[in-house]
Amino acid sequence: MEPEPKSPKQAIEEVKAGLRAPQRTQLWKSIFRVKHTRNDTRTRALAVVSNVFLHLHPGRVNRDAVRYSYTWGMGGISAYLFLVLLFTGALLMFYYHPTKVQAYRDILYLEQDVPFGRLLRNMHRWGAHLMVITVWLHMLRVVLTGAYKKPREFNWCVGVALLVLTLLLSFTGYLLPDDQLGFWAVTVGTNMARATPLVGHEGPFGPQLGMTPFNDLRFGLLGGSVVDSNALLRAYVWHCIGIPLVVLLLMGVHFWRVRKDGGISGPAPLVLDGEMKDEVR
């Protein structure tokens, strides 16, 4: 027997049911995978663990681990600032050409004509400086709480690498406006590379190994013997592609190791002096 056609009223009821409880619709379930119909601890844990953006977190954490006084939140803030910088940086890339002819004009254009262009550039600049500060404070906190100790030694090393890359990201970005400030800062900075032992033409043992201004480390960094159009292009590619890729990779390793090494390192129970065993390793 053929089913009876739906009345308009029934059809409206169906739509209303979907709006009342969107979690029960096929569309919702296809996106979120897990049933979120009940408000119990298991559902909440699943919501975190089965979500691609949140799965860096465990389902539950130690009650003390969420206390601000322990972590200061500096690692998380650094990661967030990196995302802000990716976003503002990508927008800036729409307006910027890494060439001697246009780079400086693009900055003027951004500041004078592009809607919110000045704000965009300011946010990128100050966000970068803020990130340098938060990364240093994050390191300070990890030292003060002894959070680098066994089994987290390697993750500390990954962190040091991320710190260096943060500074290099900031430094490569410094040249891009192609103004006097960036030009001379990068000139001063890369002049030190001349003096690199062995591979710099003014460094110890450099001349003996045949280093000249046209084949040494500095030449490789700048793509020339002076800071010019090649240096601008190289800084741009390192700044926008090379270093961010490495940073993203290492950030993945860094966060993964935090989880694998047992989550946030504390606040851990106090160990008294008397409880330390005097075994010589």
Binding site: N122, M123, W126, G127, L130, Y174, D179, Q180, W184, V188
Partner: peptide
């Protein structure tokens, strides 16, 4: 970050000029 960026502009000097040395020329 928004308030900071609204209150203070990122510096922009004259166009890069290898013939005119900044004094003092400071690293970031």
């Amino acid at each position: 970050l928004l308030v900071w960026s609204l209150a203070l502009n990122a510096p922009l000097e004259e166009p890069a000029n290898p013939n005119q040395t900044m004094n003092p020329a400071k690293a970031p």
